[in-house]
Computed example of a mutant assay.
Amino acid sequence: MRLFLLTTLVMIAFAANSVLNRMAVGVAGLDPGVAGAVRLGAGAAVLLVLAVWRGGGGVARPRPAVALTGAGTLFLYIFGFTVANGRIEAGIGALILFGAVQITMFAAGLLMGERPGAARWLGAAVAFGGLVVLVAPAGGAGVDPLGAAMMALGGLGWGLYSLNGRRAGAPLAASAVNFTLALPLALGWVALRGGGDLTWGIWPALLSGAVTSGLGYALWYAVVPRLAPSLAAVAQLSVPVLAALGGAALLGEVPGGRFWLAAALVLGGIGLALRRPGRSGARG
């Protein structure tokens, strides 16, 4: 039950990230590079303070390969996710993001020798079908192609980042190092783009970095080693519905019927996958 509650809390934080970053980039018009740098900087500051406090004056250092992979995949996620948030709505973006996460983590699980049971395979297939319903053109209109592609790239980065977290021995310290090492990459991105005018969007970007990203990712790094890769992937597909509700309440982005059909398929797939975990299901 404790693992379930912690996982639920992380999913809420992930949904809040979608809404806050859509607010910063898509609504307030903050430059994506600036938004990404602010998010990483705020997250790094909070995580470093907490890591030093919890570590009694020092921060445990993860293995260099784990740290560099974590920083690179975190930046890949931030890059795709932030650019996409300027082009597609929060709920739709979250659905594409975690669909790409699901594909990445399921594929990695198979390569790592995991053998999901039939129920989990069926649930994943139903959930993926919901994503197909969402992005397929209908009547000449569909999701912005570049926005969808960038969000899928972000999903690839997040899936790899989550998998890398399974190798991190100290979740809080590892998250602090990842954010700190990824920040120069984001600053380089800002330098290449030239930045832009600061808007009120800097405030939701700061909140996203300090709270729902920094603290949320540290908690995720603590939870993900206890979940099988395929189970972690499917659980994250609950985020788009939460993000859509947040987008409707805070941004006035009320999803249409096709989104809710897709969301119903996604949630139905989650239910099937969680009903009977495979042999390598969640531990603890």
Rank of each mutant, 00 (worst) to 15 (best):
T7D: 01
A16P: 02
A16N: 07
S18G: 11
N21T: 15
R22I: 03
R22P: 02
A28S: 07
G29S: 09
G36T: 01
A37D: 11
V38I: 09
R39I: 00
L40Y: 04
G41E: 08
A44D: 04
A44T: 05
V52D: 00
G55K: 06
G55V: 00
G56N: 09
V59T: 03
A60I: 05
V66T: 14
T69F: 05
A71G: 07
T73R: 14
L74I: 08
F75H: 09
N85W: 03
A90Y: 06
G91L: 15
A94I: 02
L97F: 14
F98Y: 12
M105D: 05
A107R: 14
L110I: 13
P116K: 05
P116I: 10
A119E: 08
A119K: 00
A125P: 01
A125G: 03
F128L: 09
L134M: 15
G139F: 09
G140A: 00
A141E: 04
D144W: 12
L146N: 02
G147S: 07
G154C: 04
L163M: 13
R167W: 10
R167E: 01
A173S: 13
A174Q: 15
N178W: 07
N178F: 15
F179S: 14
A182H: 03
L192I: 05
G195W: 11
W200G: 13
L207F: 13
G209V: 06
A218F: 11
L219S: 12
W220N: 08
L227R: 04
L231E: 08
A233F: 04
A235T: 11
V239G: 02
P240A: 05
A244W: 10
L245D: 15
G247K: 13
A248D: 13
V254S: 12
P255M: 09
G257Q: 10
L265K: 03
L274Q: 12
R275D: 05
G284R: 11
